[in-house]
Each structure stands twice: as C-alpha cells, then as structure tokens.
C-alpha cells in the first residue's frame, strides 16, 4: 500500500497498522476497516482518502475541526451514505456484513438522530425493538439504566435526556460495532460516567469508532485518526 502523504493529500493519519487479511494470523471476531474513503458534495471534497481500522476490544478515535468530515465518515461507515471511492470491510461475529446488513447491525449515535416526538420514550424504543426483532423489554431496561423516564414524550425531553435516549437507541440491539458521533454532547457529569461505563462494557467484546472535535476522556483509545479541514 502506497503511503498517502506522498501524494500531497490534505490529511490521513498513518497510525493505524495496515490490515491485510491474507497475512494476519488471528482472524478478528469483529472488525471495521475502511480504506481510501472519498466523498465529495458537488465540488466540495469532504473526505479524501481516509483510512482506519478497529478490531474487537479496540476504540478508534476520529478527531478534526468542524467541517472536516467526521460525521460524513461515520454516516458512510453506518451505510447511511455512499462513499464515492474506497472500501469498507465489516465483520461481526466472524461474518462479513454487506451494506444492507451493516446498516441494520451497527449501533449508531449521532446528534442528527431524532425520535418521534408524539411517542413516549418507551414507545419509541419499543417500536425500534420491534423493527429490529429485539425483545421489547430491552427498551425499558435501557431507559432505567440511563436514568430516563419511561412515559415522557420524546418531544418534551431536555437535550441531555435526548442524548441519553440516543445512547439507548444505539445499544438497543446489543451491536458489536458502535459508531458514536459526539457521544458525550450535552451530558452532565453523572451522564458521562454512565455512558462511559456502558462503553467500557461494550469494549470487553465489541469495537467502537468515536468521532469528536477534540480528543476526550474515553475508557481507552487504541487508534487515532485526525482529519484535517
């Protein structure tokens, strides 16, 4: 693989060891690997040749200024947007996930995710649980764990509570791959402690990719990609 900085690209952080399936001796149970991701909006190139990887138990942190393409990258990884170039490899429990499967299997958290404001928090989670074929009781458990009221309309939640509900949505189907865009936004100190605990739990087996403008307090950071604007 050719080193990318030689081509004079704007960024790309080579701290990640190159993943080469044919060479690696132990096949990871979970893996998210992206190579040469390119996405432009019209002539505005947001992502140019971005690479990164995380395996089970690892956390990949993506930082960069506003507009550097963190959210775009995470949307591409979640299958909510199509990169124009590049390859995304996603393995969960040893199984290769294609685009459609990846979209439904990953846990995704982003400030853009919103919930049905006419429905209560519990009704929202029960709906998504039903759609994912998950036990509906799981919604209530997560609400209790995150200290959220069950019968409050989602439209009447404070911004911190909405962020907790996003966490509940992301963890609902116990995904092994978590994509977190600004996961600590609007959370108070107990909230940050709660979700960090949940993240730590998740990392005993799963992997996570976290995007944030600045480096932040996380249980662990194994790889770091800095996107230049």
């Amino acid at each position: 693989m050719s080193p990318i900085h030689e081509q004079g690209e704007r960024f790309v952080q080579p701290t990640v060891p190159t993943y080469n399936p044919s060479v690696s001796d132990d096949t990871p149970r979970h893996l998210l690997d992206f190579r040469g991701i390119y996405r432009a909006f019209g002539r505005l190139k947001v992502l140019r040749n971005v690479n990164g990887q995380a395996r089970d138990g690892e956390l990949l942190l993506i930082t960069g200024a506003n507009g550097s393409g963190k959210s775009t990258l995470l949307r591409c990884l979640a299958g909510l947007m199509r990169p124009q170039k590049g390859r995304i490899t996603c393995v969960q429990n040893g199984k290769d996930l294609r685009l459609e499967a990846r979209r439904r299997q990953v846990g995704f958290l982003s400030p853009d995710v919103a919930f049905y404001s006419e429905l209560s928090t519990l009704e929202n989670l029960e709906l998504f649980a039903k759609l994912r074929g998950v036990e509906p009781a799981r919604g209530g458990q997560l609400l209790d764990r995150l200290g959220l009221p069950r019968n409050r309309r989602a439209g009447a939640l404070s911004s911190g509570m909405r962020q907790r509900l996003r966490w509940a949505f992301a963890l609902l189907h116990e995904p092994k791959i978590l994509l977190l865009d600004e996961p600590l936004q609007n959370l108070d100190a107990p909230g940050r402690r709660d979700v960090c605990e949940l993240l730590e739990n998740h990392l005993t087996d799963g992997l996570a990719i976290v995007a944030n403008p600045d480096p932040m307090d996380l249980p662990r950071v194994d790889h770091h990609v800095e996107l230049a604007s």
């Binding site: 432009a40 909006f41 019209g42 002539r43 505005l44 190139k45």
Partner: peptide, 11 residues
C-alpha cells in the same frame, strides 16, 4: 473537478 476552486461551489 478540473477546476481548482473547491470551496467556491460549497453547498
């Protein structure tokens, strides 16, 4: 994208 003015056409 032959033109170099990337930022001009920002959405």
């Amino acid at each position: 994208d032959l033109e170099p003015e990337d930022e001009l056409a920002a959405p």
